[in-house]
Nucleic acid binder design. Structure first.
Lengths: 124, 124
DNA sequence: ACAACCTACAACCAGGCGGTTGTAGGTTGT
DNA sequence: ACAACCTACAACCGCCTGGTTGTAGGTTGT
């Protein structure tokens, strides 16, 4: 079950690792676009763009809604935020490392203790 | 060259799209580790882990420093922040969309002409 | 009804990716 | 000096990916 988180992360980052898909995501975050409208913006076949949209959809970064003969794609900002949250989580690991370094400097030998790091460790 | 930005983003997201690499990044963000220490943590060959580290290094998410016979890897939190900033940028596009919707709701004059979608980053 | 359009999906192909093994060179400790 | 260790890199192999074309079905306008 917690491997599913990793599965989602795999899909997220893989979807974002292609510049065409990132550009598509930008467009559909800014507003709804039909697949053919999107396809017209790129120098590749309709089917190729369709596959890119499918990758983004499978990753949950985009949702499609059917209106008549068109498929209107819309970006999911919550998913984008989730990706951002994962990055923030990585950052917090780094902050933990700094905290550990501070600990080492502050703790071991009382008489060899020097001025604590000037330090940018935290701002919260 | 703004295509270089896209190249960097390609490398970032591709590097992050593998769960082993994300795990390696977590470890080296939390503290320095030699490549062999990292390799011991995974059920794959040393060379495989070495390649993962190389991918992260090429993407700028990790730096290596040589100490004796060991290569000590350390996570680069600034790069992680850059990735996060790119996500935030995507979010801002979405906020622009909402602003545009608000505009439509707020504008009670249907006969007044509105600007057609300016649609960012045209490269045609 | 018909043509034009939009979408979906399958089959196919070149190239890249994640993994392996093997080989070679530099560093450390005895 | 020697063995043990750590790293780097090349060659190879399935598999997946990003692109293509082709075919089929649903929707719209005339």
């Amino acid at each position: 079950m917690d491997g599913m988180d990793e599965d989602r992360a795999d899909a997220w980052f893989h979807a974002l690792s292609d510049r065409t898909r990132r550009d598509i995501l930008r467009r559909v975050l800014a507003g709804e676009h039909s697949v053919s409208t999107l396809a017209a913006a790129y120098d590749m076949s309709f089917a190729a763009v369709q596959k890119h949209v499918a990758v983004l959809e499978k990753a949950g970064l985009l949702t499609k809604r059917r209106q008549g003969r068109e498929a209107l794609a819309s970006g999911d900002v919550a998913a984008v935020r989730s990706v951002g949250a994962m990055l923030t989580e990585l950052e917090s690991l780094w902050r933990g490392r700094i905290a550990r370094i501070d600990e080492l400097i502050a703790a071991p030998e009382p008489h060899t203790r020097q001025a604590p790091t000037p330090c940018h460790t935290r701002k919260d």
